[in-house]
């Protein structure tokens, strides 16, 4: 099981801030494919990966990153701090 977190408009489109996902996905991109195929709201949130960022165990990474050993995946739009 892996914790999947959503922030900002990704959270709003999917409708929940966090869920546990049973997956055997090898990479972030594989996990995204699995989520997309679930329901329209996931397909809508993950429509354009260029508009999204991903963090594995709270470190920014990219969609090709492997998921082995990862406990927490977070998807969100580009950050707007400061």
């Amino acid at each position: 099981m892996i914790d999947v977190l959503y922030f900002a408009w990704v959270r709003e489109r999917i409708g929940i801030p966090k869920e546990q996902v049973q997956t055997s996905a090898a990479t972030v991109a594989d996990l995204v494919d699995e989520l997309r195929s679930r329901e329209d709201r996931y397909a809508a949130a993950f429509e354009d990966l260029a508009a999204l960022r991903v963090a594995l165990d709270q470190e920014l990474t990219d969609f090709n990153a492997p998921l082995e050993g990862v406990r927490e995946v977070a998807f969100f739009p580009p950050m707007t701090g400061g």
Partner: peptide, 26 residues
């Protein structure tokens, strides 16, 4: 610090105006 805070720290701003709400785009 300011440059990296803007786009590398996980904050997201949403603005509420009389016309509704909108996430601030990077």
């Amino acid at each position: 610090l300011m440059d990296f805070l803007k786009s590398r720290a996980p904050f997201w701003k949403k603005e509420r105006t009389g016309e509704g709400e909108e996430w601030v785009a990077s």
